[in-house]
């Protein structure tokens, strides 16, 4: 009885913790995305000057609380030599954000093959994945629908969203975070 009520207590009133891993090629804007997220959702957060952001080698973290949910972000480095490390974070991940630089269509073949590789992981196949099509405020940026078609994938079994964002200007960042929170709690639809 005690364990049951303790369990119920935990289920309802304790904050739920989720881990969100942010991946994507280098220079896609992952760190900027995380900084922007923190500045939107963390009170009195001193925004880091975008020009101070350098290529990530280790791991940047950030915590965001909303609706009784705590999201723990892990921002990883995207350079080629660092990509092998992504998989070591999947075990504990509850959701993934995959950032794409929409202005670099020359890199799209690499983006597509990276995405395929990421999606080959069984854990990733079963967690919500958000594709953030970044730098969409720039002239000549690829449309999100175009990136969507690039990343067709039949293995993914959980929710997926592809949203255009600008990490620099903060466009659509809130929508992304809300989607993550919603999709973490969502069930398949019965019709």
């Amino acid at each position: 009885m005690y364990t049951l009520s303790a369990g119920i207590w935990e289920k309802f009133f304790k904050k739920k913790d989720y881990y969100v891993v942010i991946v994507g090629l280098d220079n896609a804007g992952k760190t900027t995305f995380l900084e922007q997220t923190k500045s939107h959702f963390v009170k009195d957060y001193g925004v880091l000057n975008p020009s101070k952001i350098t290529a990530t080698v280790g791991l940047n973290t950030g915590n965001v609380e909303l609706n009784n949910t705590c999201l723990h972000f892990w921002d990883l480095g995207g350079q080629e030599s660092l990509r092998e490390l992504w998989a070591t974070y999947y075990d504990d991940a509850n959701a993934m954000i995959f950032v794409v630089d929409a202005t670099r269509s020359d890199l799209f073949p690499i983006v597509a093959s990276q995405f395929k590789e990421v999606m080959a992981n069984e854990i990733v196949q079963n967690i919500p994945v958000l594709v953030a099509v970044n730098k969409s405020e720039m002239e000549g940026a690829a449309a999100a629908a175009e990136v969507r078609m690039l990343l067709e994938d039949d293995n993914h079994r959980s929710d997926l969203a592809v949203l255009p964002v600008s990490a620099l200007e903060g466009t659509n960042i809130e929508r992304c975070v809300h989607w993550i929170v919603r999709s973490l709690a969502s069930q398949p639809l019965y019709l």
Binding site: S136, A143, A144, A145, R148, H156, R157, S158, D159, L160, A161, V162, L163, P164, N172, R175, S186, P188, L189, Y190, L191
Partner: peptide, 19 residues
């Protein structure tokens, strides 16, 4: 109202008992 650009979503549905 927030204007949309082109958002895309995928979700699992059980339609007439079929996934």
């Amino acid at each position: 109202y927030e204007p949309t650009k082109a958002d895309s979503y995928r979700k699992k549905v059980v339609l007439d008992g079929e996934e």
